[in-house]
């Protein structure tokens, strides 16, 4: 096959994928039907009084850092909500049980530790505020 055609096809596919991925990344999706419930001992930390924001991170992940600073700064305004960050690689049993496929993945847990929403990729600040207001 003509190499120019291949190059154009690869660049077009990469651009399309990059645009879709950028739009989708970090969107917080409500998980009304989620059966996942997390106990304090599984994350090595107490749950927050009214809610917990559980962030899964890994060493090879640049957006994990910006996610941490977004969540920390938003949650500072909610004294009863706790931000917990865990290393995905060191918690593989939990990662498999919760079906975490990439980092950062952020779970929003209610006071009982039940998952009520999830964001795959770095969540946006206003969406985090919205999600916390709904808890």
């Amino acid at each position: 096959m003509n190499s120019t055609l291949i190059i154009v096809a690869v660049l077009a596919l990469a651009t399309a994928y990059g645009l879709v991925d950028r739009r989708r990344a970090g969107t917080i999706k409500a998980k009304a039907d989620s059966r996942h419930s997390i106990a304090a001992h599984e994350i090595g930390s107490d749950l927050g009084e009214s809610a917990t924001v559980l962030q899964f991170s890994s060493a090879f992940c640049t957006p994990c850092r910006s996610t941490r600073s977004t969540l920390t700064s938003v949650i500072a305004h909610y004294p009863k909500i706790k931000h917990v960050e865990v290393d995905a690689e060191n918690n593989l049993a939990l990662v498999r049980r919760l079906d975490i496929r990439q980092t950062p993945t952020t779970l929003f847990l209610n006071s009982a530790g039940k998952e009520i929403a999830r964001a795959v990729g770095a969540p946006k600040r206003d969406q985090v505020i919205n999600a916390l207001e709904r808890i």
Binding site: S58, F60, C61, T62, C64, Q102, P104, G121
Partner: peptide, 13 residues
């Protein structure tokens, strides 16, 4: 072009 993070998607899998 997008600052795409390959490690985020592939490493954990």
């Amino acid at each position: 072009a997008f600052g795409y993070c390959l490690g985020c998607k592939l490493y954990l899998l």
